[in-house]
Simulated scan of single mutants.
Amino acid sequence: MRGSLRSRIIAVCNKKICQKGDNVAVSFYAFFANKNNEPELLMEAATWWIETHRLDHFEKAHKIIGMIDQGL
């Protein structure tokens, strides 16, 4: 996964944690503005989330940050 997407994921997860608390869950859609203006990046995130790691629709933000930090 490209570095810019990794940075975006961490930033969004941290923002959600600050807004809603440590137990907040996110979907990969949270990393995009509900618009399809970056289809290649959206597919990259979806592939990582669904095909590569078989994550549920919503996962804890801390789990996703940990996975990104580990280079998964």
Results as ranks from 00 to 15, higher is better:
residue 46 A to P: 02
residue 35 K to P: 03
residue 8 R to A: 10
residue 63 K to S: 14
residue 4 S to G: 03
residue 53 H to S: 06
residue 60 K to L: 15
residue 3 G to R: 04
residue 39 P to R: 02
residue 41 L to Y: 10
residue 31 F to L: 05
residue 69 D to E: 12
residue 24 V to T: 07
residue 48 W to F: 12
residue 65 I to N: 10
residue 45 A to K: 00
residue 53 H to I: 03
residue 38 E to V: 11
residue 9 I to H: 01
residue 69 D to Y: 08
residue 25 A to D: 10
residue 62 H to I: 09
residue 68 I to K: 04
residue 23 N to T: 15
residue 38 E to G: 00
residue 58 F to V: 15
residue 46 A to G: 07
residue 64 I to T: 06
residue 68 I to Y: 03
residue 67 M to V: 04
residue 17 I to D: 01
residue 70 Q to I: 00
residue 69 D to A: 15
residue 40 E to N: 08
residue 48 W to M: 04
residue 24 V to P: 04
residue 51 E to S: 14
residue 19 Q to H: 03
residue 71 G to K: 01
residue 70 Q to R: 09
residue 8 R to C: 10
residue 69 D to G: 03
residue 32 F to H: 05
residue 5 L to W: 08
residue 68 I to C: 05
residue 18 C to Q: 15
residue 58 F to M: 13
residue 2 R to Y: 11
residue 33 A to T: 09
residue 41 L to H: 09
residue 19 Q to Y: 04
residue 46 A to H: 13
residue 27 S to Y: 01
residue 64 I to A: 01
residue 61 A to S: 04
residue 23 N to I: 04
residue 12 V to T: 10
residue 37 N to P: 03
residue 71 G to W: 06
residue 39 P to I: 02
residue 71 G to N: 07
residue 17 I to F: 02
residue 38 E to P: 08
residue 59 E to A: 07
residue 50 I to Y: 14
residue 10 I to L: 07
residue 67 M to Y: 02
residue 39 P to F: 02
residue 27 S to P: 06
residue 68 I to M: 05
residue 28 F to W: 14
residue 60 K to W: 01
residue 16 K to P: 02
residue 69 D to R: 06
residue 12 V to R: 11
residue 27 S to R: 13
residue 30 A to R: 03
residue 63 K to C: 06
residue 56 D to N: 09
residue 62 H to G: 06
residue 40 E to M: 14
residue 66 G to A: 01
residue 14 N to D: 08
residue 67 M to K: 14
residue 14 N to E: 15
residue 67 M to S: 10
residue 53 H to T: 07
residue 22 D to F: 08
residue 5 L to V: 04
residue 15 K to L: 11
residue 44 E to W: 07
residue 22 D to W: 08
residue 51 E to N: 13
residue 65 I to G: 03
residue 65 I to K: 06
residue 42 L to N: 08
residue 66 G to D: 12
residue 27 S to Q: 12
residue 40 E to G: 06
residue 34 N to Q: 14
residue 34 N to K: 09
